[in-house]
Structures are given as C-alpha cells and as structure tokens.
C-alpha cells in the first residue's frame, strides 16, 4: 500500500491510498528490467514511485525540486536501501549530472 496520512482541520485523519492495486508497479516492470541498473529518477516527489522499483537496482539517484517532498522521501527510506538510494533536492534543468552514468532514466510524472 502507498498511503498518505495527514491531519485535517478539526483533528480528523486523512487517508489517501495511491494505486493500492499496484497497476503502476506492474506496468513499469513490464517495460524495464531494473535488475543491476544505475537509475536516475526525475521528479521523485516523496519517493512513491521509487519504492516500486528500487529493489534489485545497483543505485538510484532520485531528484525533485520540492525540498520538503525529498525530505519526506529520505525519512521514509528503508534501512536496506540507504547505501544504494540517494534523494536530492534539485532541478533537472540545472543539476550537474555525470555523463553516461545511468542505465535507466525515469521521468516520474514529470512535466
């Protein structure tokens, strides 16, 4: 489940489930074999999509200009991925990327 919890005015709890049917996970794994790859993700937000493919990759550099969302992604980063997944608050149009460093680039709902 990919769940967002929050608190609304008046103390009510907000529950949002994003694609609990896992349609996105199935689709991306049908398109890309992520095993052993170095991945650049553009527009990672809070890491919602990252969690769906990070297992088995060699490395992930996930970027988003929204610093608060990136901070949330870092906070949610599972311990077993701390050496392979890096979240960075950055804009793809200005960030300095190493040339020919990635096997896969993911444009994650990034328009």
């Amino acid at each position: 489940m990919h769940e967002l919890d929050g608190e609304l005015e008046g103390g009510h709890t907000m529950v949002v489930l994003r694609d609990p049917e896992q349609a996105e996970t199935q689709a991306i794994h049908e398109l890309i074999d992520f095993a052993g790859t170095d991945v650049l993700e553009v527009g990672c937000g809070d890491g919602r999509l990252t969690w769906r493919y990070a297992a088995g990759t060699r490395s992930v550099l996930a970027l988003d200009p929204d610093a608060a969302a990136v901070e949330q992604a870092r906070a949610d980063l599972p311990e077993q991925w701390r050496h392979t997944v890096t979240f960075q608050a950055a804009d793809i149009t200005s960030v300095d990327l190493p040339p020919r460093a990635f096997d896969v680039v993911v444009l994650a709902w990034s328009l």
Binding site: E24, I28, L31, I32, L40, V42, L49, I92, L97, P98, P99, R100, A101, F102, D103, V104, V105, V106, L107, A108, W109, S110, L111
Partner: peptide
C-alpha cells in the same frame, strides 16, 4: 538527460495522459 544515459540506456516516460 540524454547525456546522462549510457549508450543503449533506457528512458521510462511515465505521466498522466
């Protein structure tokens, strides 16, 4: 992004229609 990919690398473009 083109230059960041290795030759033969893959780009996954995912967005709401």
């Amino acid at each position: 992004m083109h230059t960041a990919l290795r030759t033969g690398g893959q780009l996954l473009d995912l967005h709401p229609d």
